[in-house]
Every structure is written in C-alpha cells, then in structure tokens.
Nucleic acid binder design. Sequence first.
DNA 1: CATAGATCCTGTATGC
DNA 2: TGCATACAGGATCTAT
Length: 303
Amino acid sequence: MRTTPVPELPEVEVVRAGLQRWVAGREVASVEVRHPRAIRRQEGGTPQLVAGVKGRVVPCVSRRGKYLWLPLLVPGHPVPEAALIAHLGMSGQLLIEPTGAPDERHLRVRFGFADGGRELRFVDQRTFGGLWVTDLVPDGAGGRVPREVAHIARDLLDPRWDETSVVRTVRRRDSEIKRVLLDQTVASGIGNIYADEALWRARIHGRRPARSLTAAQIRELLGHARDVMEQALAEGGTSFDSLYVNVNGQSGYFDRRLSAYGREGEPCGRCSTPIRREAFMNRSSFWCPSCQRAPRGRAAVRR
DNA sequence: CATAGATCCTGTATGC
DNA sequence: TGCATACAGGATCTAT
C-alpha cells in the first residue's frame, strides 16, 4: 500500500455513474442508520432522514465536484424538491450489494428498495463522509442543486465550465496557487492528489502566488488538471489500496500513473531529480525541485 | 470580506 | 510483544 485512498472528482464520477445504473427509477423502501456520525449533517436526525427518502423514487444521480446526490421524487409529482446528498469524505464508499450479503465492517447506512433488489450501502472507515436529505435550490442557471452545493463552483468536467471566468478568479486570489486549486469555491473537484499532478505537469511550484502566474499559465494548469482527471476517469478512478472500490466493488488502478503524488524520493519522470515532499495544510505536497522552481522565500508577498 | 489554520476520525505503519 | 505516535486529508468552523 502506498498511502490512503481518497475519492476525488474522477472517483466520485465513477460512483455516480454506477449508482445511476443501479438505482435510477427505483423506490426507496427502508433506511437503517448504523452509525449516527454518518448522518450528522441531517437536520432532525434519523427520523427526518427516513421521512425524506421512504417512498421516494430516485429518477437519476447527479454530481458537482465531490458531492453527489440522488433527487427524491414524490410519486405523482413532476419535479423533485429534495435530494439525498452524499459526500464520501476520505474513505466513503457507496456500494450496491445483494440483500443479505454480509455487513461490511464499517457499514454506516443501508437503504432498501421497494423492488426487493440490491440494496445501497454507505460504508466509511474514517467517517469524514456523510449522507443527508436536503432541499434543492435554484443554481442560478435554470437548474437546481442541493443547498449545500450551491456555493461550490462548477467542476472541470462540467459542460458549463467557464474557463475564462475561472482564470480571472484565480488571478485575483491573494494566495498560493495550490491553495487556490484546492478551494472548491473557485473550481470544484480538485483534491490534493490531482493538484500535485496538475502542478507537476505544468511545471509550476504550488507555493507560487496565484497572482504571479499569467492567464496562459493558469489555462495550461487547469487543462492539465482536466486531462489527469479525465485519464483517471477513463481508467475507473484512482486507488491506493483495497479501501477504495467503485460502486460495483472493483478497485481502480490509476495510481500507477501518478507522476508526483506519493513519489517522494523517486526520480522525476522528466528529469530524474528525486521528487520532494513537504508538509502543507496538514497534508503533503509532492513536487520536482528541478522542473517546478520554488518562489524565492517570502519576497513574492508584498507589504 | 478574504485568507489561514485548527479540527474531525480511525486504520495502518513505524519506532522504542 | 505492546504501546505510543505519526500519518492520510475534504470540508467546515474559528481566528485574524
């Protein structure tokens, strides 16, 4: 095992697509909460979660960034007013399992369906993730999104992604470029792994002030972020050990393609300089000290 | 308001 | 062997 698995946008999209296939059109019949922390963001707790989903039909499965949600349709009504929203956190899984299959060690919530077919399970070792029912609100573009998603920016794979607007936002931020990449209100879906990969591909050091980059450099950087996520998506999601599995229980294998993340001491794929690692925001950054030149001290911060 | 840092959580790896 | 500690990190909350 290299390190911990963390679902980012490609992994969440893999889960979304799997759920779409397995639960679309089905009516929820039951909910069993096995660990209260998994629904800590649910207003009204378990009773309100049960009331919100029982008897509702799931027409489709949607996603923005790392959030995904199941709209909840009251039979006979044309439009859903609420949704079951899910965030996988660091170790969350949404699994489709045959009824009666043995419980997973970290099973947190189980959903049964009226057709008696396979059930939906939320399994989460570290319990940073969670599920809850929330209102759908206007997204400002004619659609509707869960209340908690409204403040998150569109992601790089969104058909309505507006690159010119995002580049402008990035250049206005008074912060280091990696922090900006990780800010979900600027562009959603980029986590620590893909931020490091995009920076490596673009030959940009994560501590460079965002304002020191040209618009062209930011466009290139975002393009690399999109490319690496699309590659991961095509291969079924990144995986570091058996903890991350997609909705059908199969691990992805994209980790073998990562160039910087998790490769401390290994030779850079371009110049063979050993990849460096440093603590950053209570996590780690990996970069090539030769290809990605560090900014000079704090001189870039003007006073 | 914008930005930085602390915090939550537990299995795994490592050190003494 | 057993115990303690470090580490993984997204989103949220608090502080500045």
